[in-house]
């Protein structure tokens, strides 16, 4: 049967992708950001996933104001990196895993989570930046297929932390009931504290971020109860992206060990946070 051994939490700041794509990761500004992923890249080699289930949000790229699904599951054979206004990132096409994706869709919908199914979807930096930081530079293809789950965090209200956490549990039940013997790794991406808009732009709250990471590992139920108001007030209007980490956490065991943590301010306008959690 398929199994989940570990989860990854990771910011998906677009400028991190640009730094990799333009080869400036050794510059003093970027070096401390990437230093924290050295261990992660080795860990990815040692814990090679067969499939990654990646929770992220689209930034008004694939989804315009016309269609705003709360949860959209990528069931296509492949996903093209999108042009976000600066040309597409020079990274490989993301291959999906159609059999597992449709199994998850069916299982989770019967479990009463009404997902939108995407048989065609472009993916933006929200999906490709976490792959880049965790795998490092890749040549012609990504090391494994990816199942994207796009979450609306742009138009208020995003799904609640609890809803995300419960969906993660449903995703786990789906993976556990898939007959092939494969290692499915779950990524929750976005955050950490940041505000990109209006007069309060540039807000960073390391105390909030640290508490969030501590709760994620030690008391995920309490973490899942953080309200939207608290995210927006304390972690910035775009800090609400952190709800997506609860999907990842819900897919893990109740007890996990945090085997790696990395936190750095800033990458562009954002606090970069990253954890690796292994099931215990």
């Amino acid at each position: 049967m398929a199994y989940v051994k570990a989860g990854v939490g990771c910011s998906h700041v677009p400028a991190i992708g640009v730094a990799m794509d333009t080869g400036i990761t050794e510059q003093p500004y970027w070096q401390p950001v990437f230093k924290g992923f050295e261990k992660s890249r080795q860990w990815m080699k040692d814990n090679k996933p067969d499939v990654i289930f990646l929770v992220y949000n689209d930034h008004c790229t694939a989804f315009s104001a016309e269609v705003i699904p709360t949860f959209a599951l990528g069931c296509a054979a492949e996903f093209q990196p999108a042009d976000e206004g600066w040309g597409p990132r020079p990274v490989p096409v993301v291959k999906g895993h159609q059999k597992l994706a449709s199994h998850i869709a069916q299982s989770v919908i019967l479990d009463e989570f009404d997902l939108t199914i995407m048989n065609k979807m472009e993916v933006d930096h929200g999906l490709t930046v976490p792959l880049s930081v965790m795998f490092g530079d890749v040549e012609d293809e990504w090391p494994c297929p990816v199942i994207p789950l796009a979450v609306n965090v742009v138009q208020y209200p995003a799904p609640t932390g609890n809803r995300c956490y419960q969906l993660g549990k449903a995703v786990r039940r789906a993976i556990d009931s898939y007959e092939e013997d494969i290692n499915v790794m779950v990524f929750g991406t976005g955050g950490m504290s940041h505000q990109l808009q209006a007069q309060r732009a540039g807000l960073i709250n390391p105390e909030f971020d640290k508490r969030f990471l501590d709760l994620l590992t030690e008391d995920p139920v309490a973490g899942s109860q953080i309200t939207h108001l608290e995210y927006m007030r304390e972690a910035g209007s775009e800090g609400i992206e952190l709800v997506m980490w609860h999907v990842m956490r819900g897919a893990l065991n109740e007890k996990v060990e945090e085997v790696h943590r990395h936190y750095h301010v800033p990458a562009s306008n954002t606090a970069v946070g990253h954890v690796i959690l292994e099931n215990r």
Binding site: P14, A15, Y29, S193, Q195, L196, Q197, A198, Q199, R200, A201, G202, L203, I204, N205, P206, E207, F208, E234, V265, P266, S268, N269, A271
Partner: peptide
């Protein structure tokens, strides 16, 4: 760029905003 845009919305010069971010960002 996104960072220049953020600076404009806060009424800060780009370098001033970038400096604020390097020093840990806008405090809560």
């Amino acid at each position: 760029t996104f960072q220049e845009l953020a600076a404009k919305m806060t009424g800060m010069a780009s370098e001033e905003y970038r400096d604020m971010m390097v020093k840990g960002g806008r405090s809560i």
